[in-house]
């Protein structure tokens, strides 16, 4: 009986850093932002409870259009990343052996040793009017004047897919690795074509990995700031820019807080929808990631 309170105290002390971390850095700011988002300015330095910040979002087309555009583009980026990452992950998990496998994973990881900002600036050097791609196009005669490849949706998508690739490849390769080779062979042996085996055996098996990768990439993309701003310029129109503008440029913190909450709601809703549509549970997905 004497030991019980002591044990409980030990447990509490062990958990304390994690609880403090979660509480102070994640839960508390979100509560603060939630409260802030419901306050509206009635006079200078006088705030009252109200829904005006949320109403503003729905009445001003720029806001909800940017919002919808962000959601749509993020889904597109996630889908493109999945399509690109799948064959790579398949190769890493099922074809490459030993050192080649480790090398390939390392190659995927390598770009992430430099900061996101530097990576994005790298893309800018390639794509700008005076950049490498433009120069090559002129050199081979495909263009007779400098080509501006930056500041369009294509550049934004390119940058975002590039940034998300690793986070798709790792959970996918993990999921594909656990597929027994004999199961794939049995799929062929019983008369399945490559497509049938992929559709009915490989993809269903990799589903937890696919969903995990998609959730991570989608979250990273929706919340990305540097890539759309740098590669999209004025045409970037990413919702995070609106949040930034409200907090920093306009100094309208309640409005920015409301946008922040909306973005949180959006990504949670889409993740929930994705899980429902694929019939996966959050638990198995997290295990895979």
């Amino acid at each position: 009986m004497m030991q019980k309170p002591a044990q409980r105290l030990t447990l509490f002390l062990l958990l304390a850093p994690a609880i403090l971390w979660l509480g102070l850095l994640i839960v508390l700011p979100h509560v603060e932002i939630l409260v802030l988002s419901f306050s509206e300015r009635v006079a200078p330095r006088v705030y009252a409870f109200g829904f005006r910040n949320y109403l503003e979002f729905f009445t001003e087309p720029l806001y909800w259009r940017t919002f919808a555009r962000t959601a749509f583009m993020s889904i597109l980026v996630t889908a493109l990343t999945l399509v690109l990452a799948f064959p790579i992950a398949l190769y890493i998990a099922r074809v490459a052996q030993g050192r080649v496998k480790a090398m390939l994973l390392l190659l995927c990881l390598l770009p992430f040793w430099v900061s996101e900002l530097v990576r994005t600036l790298g893309w800018m050097m390639l794509l700008r009017e005076t950049g490498v791609v433009s120069y090559i196009l002129r050199a081979v005669g495909a263009a007779d004047q400098p080509v501006e490849l930056l500041y369009n949706d294509g550049a934004v998508i390119l940058g975002l897919v590039y940034g998300g690739l690793l986070f798709m490849i790792v959970p996918l390769a993990n999921a594909l690795e656990s597929l027994e080779p004999a199961v794939v062979e049995a799929g062929f042996d019983l008369g399945g074509s490559r497509w049938t085996v992929l559709r009915r055996i490989v993809i269903p098996h990799a589903m937890p990995g696919i969903v995990a990768g998609c959730i991570i990439v989608f979250m990273l993309t929706v919340g990305n700031f540097a890539t759309p701003v740098l590669l999209g310029g004025k045409n970037g129109l990413w919702f995070t820019e609106q949040i930034y503008a409200q907090f920093i440029t306009r100094f309208n913190w309640p409005q920015g807080a409301a946008f922040g909450m909306l973005l949180l709601l959006l990504s949670s809703a889409i993740v929930w929808l994705g899980l429902r549509l694929t019939g996966q549970s959050l638990g198995t997905t997290l295990k895979q990631a």
Partner: peptide, 27 residues
């Protein structure tokens, strides 16, 4: 392999875990 009139029972059996028993046989 998928065009041969030969079918194999694997050492590990290699049943398809993502399918039901009926779907395995109907595959």
């Amino acid at each position: 392999a998928n065009r041969r009139p030969v079918n194999m029972v694997f050492q590990s059996l290699a049943l398809f875990p993502m399918m039901s028993v009926g779907e395995n046989v109907a595959y």
